[in-house]
Design a protein around this nucleic acid. Structure first.
Lengths: 333, 333
DNA sequence: TTGAAAGCGCTAACAC
DNA sequence: GTGTTAGCGCTTTCAA
């Protein structure tokens, strides 16, 4: 691996000059610039990130911290984040925290001394304190699925509340009268907002019944279990709104196992819009988030922030949309 | 951020001593060690990775380069890789190359000067030359899905050929006589090995017909398209072996759209064993790879290699197993 | 427009 | 046992 010194020697200039052309700072005569460029080319010189960082530059890498990368929502998100990062010359770190708050904090600790320039926390359960730690280190961050702005960090989310209202209304309009909700873990703002939208909508229609709410953990299996217990106490449920697609799919599996047909007996609606919603049978009606857009926006925002471009907005709330498929529809009357 | 100097000052020792206790090298008296430890604690000192790297140490991070992180096979793999990395104090970089050979090479370039200690290439299309580049830089690497060992890098794969034979035999035993294969892109060894297993098995049963082979691109849509063209020329196909689960799912969708029922009219078998194979309807029979094991083995191998623990084996071939679900079974006779 | 040199935080001889 | 110090490769004043 050749160093800046090698380049300087070959080009017959000083290392400072090489540094100048690398960073296109200061003025360098066309002639010297050409010489240096040639030398760089010839030696296939790549500056050492570690040395640059030590000298006060950026590492050009960002981290995405998710609950579980094997969850399709997050892997689709990661793809978007990485695409944008790559286009900007940034590398992407990935960390899974499996809903273990401790592990999420560990990432802050273990990665921040690796000179990561920015963090994206997806679906985080970070406390204000954790966030302060990062802010004190002046490491920019964007948080997804967070209620409101916390000083100094951008929030990017989608309209969870509105989406839940749309989903619930959709079910009501289809004729469902005993509508259950499979909610996500209570520590996520996402879960809370979707739950609120569900409750408010039902209340306004006089259909609210708290015993029709069960909690899942955002996994297929969790959705299945929640559906089972719901069905035990309320065998006549005719509509289900799950806080994410995975749980909705689990619910559909359980429904089928219990001899209920979707959508004839029960209509099911999910939330997220992940690709597998389109391959299950029947196709899953869902409130689709613009996942790719969410990821690329987060990525671009954090990259801009590392370069000192401050963001004018501190909260982005992207629109969701109802995607109707076979899991909601005509019911037996 | 406090530095080693701050710690040294506070503990009234030299930086060398601090370095010693950090790296538990050399002897340090219990007394001084305690003083230093206290100072470290008090200042919440974290050594700078960049500085350590410059001084000749490891960055403690590895990279996983995949075609597409949003493909469930790779996201499940990534999860395993990250788990093991995290346990060893390593961070994980992720790169997508979208089957663009150029981009895969770019990763080698752009990441290697970021002091990544090791690479895992999954499903790579790297040439010997590319690999040589890394070997010359003395960066250890493991390659998944590669035919054989290339000097200096460990190969981790599963028994593709055997798996394809098992799948094909399974179809034959079910009574299928006109069996098609949806193969993966020709540049992947994986595709080739699975194709070979398919061909050999059919030949040995006198059922081989090259026009029953179509190529897909490992995506659902690719599988759908391949199935369509296959059905055009061979409307009586009664068995399909796809080189991965995603394409098998695409084939099932197309079959359904064309009025064929699975498995009554056509039996379908995939390869990989990703989780969604279990949520489609009917469930997908598949040759399951031990994905988590593959990922954790790769991760541990590369981490060991960065620490100088050379691996005794240079090729691992993990076993696969046939997982029978609803997509293969009783046919109409 | 260019060069010399200090310094970023750490490790590892080499002294003591 | 512990301290001193010379780098590691780069950026950036400060001079020239």
């Amino acid at each position: 691996m050749s160093t800046i010194k090698d380049v300087a020697n070959l080009a017959n200039v000083s290392v400072a000059t090489v540094s100048r052309v690398m960073n296109s700072s200061d003025y360098v005569s066309e002639e010297t610039r050409a010489k240096v460029l040639n030398a760089i080319e010839e030696l296939k010189y790549k500056p050492s990130s570690a040395a640059r960082v030590l000298a006060g530059k950026k590492m050009m890498s960002i981290a995405l911290v998710v609950p579980d990368i094997s969850n399709p929502f997050f892997s689709e998100l990661a793809r978007a984040v990485e695409d944008v990062a790559q286009k900007n010359g940034f590398s992407l770190f990935i960390g899974n925290f499996y809903n273990k708050n401790t592990r999420e904090k560990d990432y802050i600790k273990s990665m921040s001394n690796k000179y990561i320039d920015g963090f994206i926390f997806a679906s985080s359960t970070l406390t204000e304190e954790d966030i302060d730690t990062l802010i004190k280190k002046e490491i920019p961050m964007v948080v997804m699925d967070r209620a409101a702005t916390i000083g100094g960090c951008t929030v990017i989310k989608c309209k969870n509340y509105d989406g839940a209202c749309i989903a619930t209304n959709h079910l009501i309009q289809l004729g469902c009268r005993e509508i259950a909700h499979i909610s996500g873990p209570g520590e996520f703002v996402t879960s809370m907002e979707r739950l609120k939208g569900f409750e408010d909508t039902l209340k306004s229609h006089g259909l609210y019944n708290p015993s029709l709410i069960s909690h899942g953990d955002f996994t297929i299996d969790g959705g299945r279990q929640a559906m089972r217990s719901l069905l035990n106490t309320h065998p006549n449920i005719d509509g289900v709104f799950a806080a994410n697609d995975l749980m909705a799919i689990g619910a559909m599996k359980e429904l089928k196992a219990m001899g209920k047909e979707v959508p004839r007996d029960v209509s099911v609606c999910g939330f997220d819009g992940v690709q597998i919603g389109d391959i299950v049978e029947p196709g899953l009606t869902t409130i689709a988030q613009p996942i790719y857009e969410l990821g690329s926006l987060a990525s671009q925002t954090i990259i801009d922030a590392t370069m000192g471009k401050l963001n004018s907005k501190d909260t982005y709330e992207l629109d969701i949309k109802l995607v109707e498929r076979g899991s909601t529809g005509k019911m037996r009357v």
